[in-house]
């Protein structure tokens, strides 16, 4: 005990690392208890469950890789995988364009820029669930305002439900996500743009570079890390999509907009096949980890340059 104390005193006066070896651990401990209980234990449990036939009631049985084999031959799962990937591939570049576009508009620090930034950002802070319930009404053919605007513009009578056919059902969800998430990406790009030193832009202007050229050859390369991070956030968010599909389309038409998370939810919590749900979760988690690792790798390469 006193040995630790003297160690503490010495190291602090030496001005290097302060305090005791154990002190830091005590500060971190409470958070780590939660992480162990509700992250590490479930993570271990998830992997174990994925090798079992795990009903809600009664004893689980070990079935090895059967859940995974089933997943790779399950057409409904393959369908959900496909629609999730398609959704991700549409949403990610779209948000990139809208987010960057808005960031270029409001990157200034004048009061009026900040005012518009605030307005654009409001859809980000409302819940995904609430936003989806709003959209469910907004695009309803009878009482929603969006179909009414289309009618007033003479674009048809809009009698058909917009969630009854593909690809319209998917487009409606994408529209909502772009509305809700553009400003999040905008803030990310804005932070990156503001970090670019003014001299670089000025010297480029002196060399005769115009707006588009400056964007392509100066801003975008310097924004690589920001772009990488925002891409990962958008991709992983899209791969986990649930609320918007569950609420707006409920999988219509005929399960064609049933995402991985949605199908997983049905298998685990409606059909109570917890083992199979766990195997699907592992596949999803592996997918998410691969994407994060790629991003980490790329950003490391950046800093080595």
């Amino acid at each position: 005990m006193s040995a630790i104390k003297s160690l503490t005193a010495r190291s602090s006066y030496a001005g290097k690392k302060r305090f005791s070896l154990s002190g830091g651990f005590l500060f971190v401990l409470p958070a780590m208890i939660f992480v162990s209980m509700f992250f590490l234990w479930p993570l271990y449990s998830l992997i174990m469950m994925s090798f079992q036939d795990y009903p809600l009631l009664g004893d689980p049985t070990w079935i090895g890789l059967d859940n995974y084999k089933e997943a790779f031959t399950d057409d409904e799962f393959k369908g959900s995988f496909k629609i999730t990937i398609i959704y991700t591939l549409i949403v990610t570049p779209l948000l990139f364009i809208t987010g960057l576009g808005c960031a270029l508009l409001i990157k200034g620090t004048s009061r009026i820029s900040i005012f518009f930034r605030t307005i654009f950002f409001i859809p980000v802070v409302i819940g995904f669930g609430s936003a989806a319930f709003l959209w469910f009404w907004f695009i309803n053919p009878d009482t929603g305002y969006l179909p009414q605007i289309m009618r007033d513009l003479g674009l048809g009578d809009m009698k058909e439900s917009w969630t009854a056919t593909m690809p319209l059902a998917l487009i409606m969800v994408v529209l909502m996500v772009v509305w809700k998430f553009t400003a999040f990406q905008m803030i990310g790009f804005m932070t990156g743009l503001q970090a670019i030193p003014e001299e670089i832009n000025e010297s480029a202007s002196l060399d005769g570079a115009t707006g588009m050229k400056k964007l392509r050859f100066i801003s975008l390369p310097l924004l690589r890390r920001t772009i990488g991070l925002l891409m990962v956030l958008s991709i992983s968010g899209s791969l986990l999509a649930f609320d918007q599909f569950y609420i707006i389309t409920a999988g219509r038409p005929e399960g064609q907009t049933q995402t991985i998370a949605f199908y997983l939810f049905r298998q685990a919590f409606l059909a109570f096949r917890l083992g199979y749900g766990a195997a699907l979760s592992v596949i999803l988690a592996v997918l998410l980890m691969i994407i994060s690792l790629i991003q980490i790798k790329l950003s490391r390469m950046d800093t080595h340059e």
């Binding site: 997983l264 766990a278 998410l288």
Partner: peptide, 19 residues
């Protein structure tokens, strides 16, 4: 903590429910 950024709770709902 970094690992939690990669594997969000949506992928762990099944065991969380059991725990």
């Amino acid at each position: 903590i970094l690992l939690m950024f990669m594997i969000p709770f949506q992928a762990l709902l099944v065991p969380l429910f059991r725990i």
